[in-house]
């Protein structure tokens, strides 16, 4: 614990510069209406409650939490695809009221257009922006090269491996050129080796493009390895328990930091937060009612601690 606090203390500077935050989330609450499975009555389900977070421009923030904690919902709200029941989200100081040009999302499971080739998938957002054809090709060439898919321009998604499809999805959103990149478990469906390569590639792209990235994951190692700060969420109701600064050196490669003591300490700290042992969050009493074991098991499956 004390080790984690030491690292945490070093990360405060990010909040203290003079630029306004890129993303501000103020007191978000999101309530879903759902049907009770036994009696069919409409019930409200609080997916997110009291979520506050600020993300600086160019910052890489990961959101980690057990399944069902509302982390994907949070991304949807950020992207403008859904709106909060209460509270507000500001991007560049403007309230988010719907999908906007400054925000791009990589959805879970790639969501590539199966009838479009790699190139046409990447150009999708550009077509929507009415970018002329010649310029579209230049841009898609650049991103095809960036995500190392040269030679596969005319392949269709079904002809690509999971990792390649993922890279197309990332290239598609990068070509759209938003300031803020939202990613929903982008590496969940690829094998462990590909995952690490993709994570390093993402770090590489982030360093090159200086985008603001919010990435949702349930993998602790991924959360720490990529991020400047890790927002740890708990569920019932979904809320941010704590935001843990990651003061590992940049530029960074996951393989290079994974075995450092600092990484291990952070990893243990976040694991404890997810286990509900580090009772710093405000909703400790409520979440204690939930059986903890399955959350712990779930996360341990994926995390190397």
């Amino acid at each position: 614990m004390s080790g984690a606090d030491r690292i945490a203390a070093g990360g405060v500077t990010a909040h203290e510069n003079n630029r306004p935050p890129k993303i501000e989330i103020h007191g978000i609450e999101r309530i879903f209406l759902k049907k009770n499975e036994t009696n069919g009555a409409q019930e409200s389900f609080v997916a997110l409650k009291d979520v506050n977070l600020k993300v600086e421009s160019g910052e890489f923030v990961t959101v980690v939490g057990p399944s069902g904690c509302g982390k994907s919902t949070l991304l949807f709200l950020l992207s403008g695809l859904a709106s909060p029941s209460r509270g507000e989200i500001l991007i560049n100081g403007d309230k988010v009221t719907g999908p906007a040009l400054n925000c791009g999302i990589v959805l879970q499971g790639y969501a590539l257009f199966p009838w479009r080739s790699v190139r046409k998938n990447i150009e999708f957002g550009l077509e929507l922006k009415s970018v002329p054809k010649k310029e579209r090709k230049e841009i898609s060439d650049y991103y095809i090269n960036l995500v190392d898919l040269t030679g596969f321009e005319n392949h269709y998604p079904y002809q690509l491996s999971g990792g390649m499809q993922q890279r197309v999805a990332i290239a598609r959103v990068l070509a759209y050129d938003p300031d803020v990149l939202l990613m929903d478990e982008p590496f969940a469906a690829v094998d462990a080796q590909t995952r690490e390569t993709m994570q390093d590639e993402l770090l590489n792209i982030w360093e090159k493009t200086q985008k603001t990235i919010v990435l949702v994951t349930h993998n602790i190692e991924e959360a720490i390895g990529l991020a400047d700060r890790v927002a740890v969420m708990s569920r019932n109701p979904g809320t941010i328990r704590d935001v843990v600064p990651v003061n590992l050196p940049r530029p960074r490669r996951i393989g290079g930091v994974r075995n450092t003591p600092d990484f291990q300490i952070l990893s243990h700290h976040i694991w404890e937060l997810l286990q509900d042992k580090g009772s710093r969050g405000g909703s400790g009493a409520q979440s204690a009612a939930v059986p903890r074991v399955d959350i712990g098991e779930h996360i341990r499956d994926d995390a190397v601690i």
């Binding site: 999908p99 499971g109 969501a111 999708f124 929507l128 759209y176």
Partner: peptide, 19 residues
């Protein structure tokens, strides 16, 4: 998700339908 993807890129109803 395909429709969400298009919407997230600011596609209007017409573009969602045609594309």
């Amino acid at each position: 998700r395909l429709i969400q993807c298009a919407r997230s890129m600011n596609a209007g109803n017409f573009a969602v339908f045609t594309k």
